[in-house]
């Protein structure tokens, strides 16, 4: 609970965001060991389109830095949109590509259109509730290293990324392989899919970046805070109240 319990994170998030949570997968206890159990933080526009995602647990500094980047980028995007008329979605994808280049020294071309992933037909596999499964979105191709980044700095960043949990090796167009940590993978994904609805992105984030299977089973634990009284002032949440009344 290091990041979410941090006072500075709390102040900043409560000032600029309205927060909520959802349980999207579950974990099992096998032989006393917990399998699974993870978190992804989505920063969204009020209509549910994803501006940024922080996959997995991060420390308070990283969390605050990413949240601040989102707020600054939204302001910058709105100003630039007024000045140039470039769609906000395209600008935000460019910002993700820019951050990937500046922080990780790797270049991707932001995608300026939305590929059609909604090919839901009669042959589409659906979960027991009748919904099609969340699509797995392809990340944009990696062009290679930024020539202005510096060879030594790139080597250091690559070593740090490779040491991160959930790091993934990604090939660029020339076949060279680069290590990307979860946050770098998120920037790469969002350089192509930022401002997509959260229900299109969460499958890719949870399954491709965090490596967890999304559970379609009914959720038994409504809240991930079982040691706390449910809801405010110890009252049960509305869903639980309905269950109790039945």
């Amino acid at each position: 609970m290091s990041a979410l319990a941090d006072r500075r994170v709390g102040e900043f998030v409560n000032r600029h965001f309205v927060s909520s949570f959802q349980k999207v997968a579950t974990f099992r206890i096998v032989g006393g060991q917990k399998q699974g159990g993870n978190v992804a933080t989505y920063f969204c526009a009020p209509d549910g389109r994803v501006l940024h995602v922080v996959p997995g647990p991060v420390d308070a500094e990283t969390f605050l830095s990413e949240a601040q980047w989102v707020v600054e980028s939204v302001r910058r995007g709105l100003e630039e949109n007024k000045k140039t008329g470039t769609p906000f979605k395209v600008l935000f994808r460019e910002y993700h590509a820019e951050r990937l280049r500046q922080r990780y020294g790797l270049v991707v071309e932001p995608v300026r259109f939305d590929p059609d992933t909604s090919a839901a037909g009669a042959l589409t596999y659906r979960d027991p509730t009748g919904r099609p499964l969340a699509p797995v979105l392809p990340p944009p191709p990696l062009d290679g290293p930024d020539v202005n980044f510096g060879r030594e700095l790139l080597r250091q960043v690559q070593a740090a990324q490779a040491a991160m949990p959930l790091a993934k090796m990604v090939s660029d167009r020339a076949g060279r392989r680069w290590a990307l940590g979860p946050l770098a993978q998120a920037h790469m994904l969002l350089a192509a899919h930022a401002l997509q609805p959260i229900d299109k992105l969460y499958g890719t984030v949870f399954e491709n970046i965090l490596g967890e299977k999304i559970s379609t089973k009914p959720v038994e634990i409504v809240t991930p805070f079982p040691w706390r009284p449910e809801g405010k002032r110890g009252e049960p949440l509305p869903a639980q109240r309905r269950v109790q009344n039945q």
Binding site: M1, S2, A3, L4, V13, H16, F17, V18, S19, S20, F21, Q22, K23, V24, A25, T26, F27, K34, G36, G37, N38, V39, A40, T41, Y42, F43, C44, A45, P46, G48, L51, P57, A67, V70, V71, V74, I198, Y202, V205, F206, E212, S215, P224, F225, P226, W227
Partner: peptide
């Protein structure tokens, strides 16, 4: 709904575990 009224952004946590685990968030 509240974010629209207060002109804020939205933060959504997707979780598959317990917050009591110090490594979760």
């Amino acid at each position: 709904k509240r974010a629209v009224a207060e002109e804020k952004l939205v933060m959504v946590l997707h979780v598959s575990g317990h917050f009591e685990d110090p490594g979760l968030t």
